[in-house]
Simulated assay, not measured.
Amino acid sequence: MQLLVNTLATFIQIYTVLLIIRVLLTWFPTINWYNQPFTTLSQITDPYLNLFRSIIPPLGGMDFSPMLAIILLQIVGGGLQAV
């Protein structure tokens, strides 16, 4: 059981880093999201982010959904480490 919890906690940490990279790359408007490795990163992170985008639409050109998504991952990851 502990192996499963550790694996899930590691996955959450890696996924959080991928989300942060995705958010930071949006600051560069010259990035072509149709080229590799950006397409793969987008395919991995967008389904999760779209869940939060449906709850919190962009306000004034700012997308706050990644903050909520990362906070939720951190809460779940912290809960797993407490087990």
Rank of each mutant, 00 (worst) to 15 (best):
L4Q: 02
L4V: 12
N6C: 08
N6A: 13
N6T: 09
T7I: 13
L8R: 01
F11A: 15
I12L: 15
Q13F: 11
I14D: 05
I14C: 12
I14G: 03
I14Q: 08
Y15I: 02
Y15M: 06
Y15D: 02
Y15F: 15
V17I: 15
L18M: 12
L18N: 08
L19F: 06
I20Y: 07
I21K: 04
R22E: 10
R22G: 08
R22H: 13
L24C: 15
L25T: 09
P29W: 05
P29S: 11
T30A: 11
T30C: 04
I31D: 07
W33G: 05
Y34K: 05
Q36V: 03
P37W: 03
P37D: 01
P37A: 03
P37N: 01
T39F: 01
T39C: 03
T40I: 04
Q43F: 06
T45N: 06
D46P: 00
P47Q: 06
Y48F: 14
Y48R: 01
L49H: 02
N50Q: 12
L51G: 04
F52L: 12
F52Y: 14
S54G: 03
I55W: 13
I56T: 14
I56C: 12
P57G: 11
L59V: 14
G60N: 10
G60L: 09
G61W: 03
G61T: 02
F64G: 03
P66Q: 10
P66C: 12
M67F: 15
M67A: 15
A69N: 04
I70G: 06
L72Y: 07
Q74C: 13
V76P: 02
G77L: 08
G77T: 03
G78P: 10
G78L: 04
G78Q: 06
G78R: 03
G79W: 03
G79M: 06
L80Q: 01
Q81N: 11
A82L: 15
V83Q: 08
V83A: 12
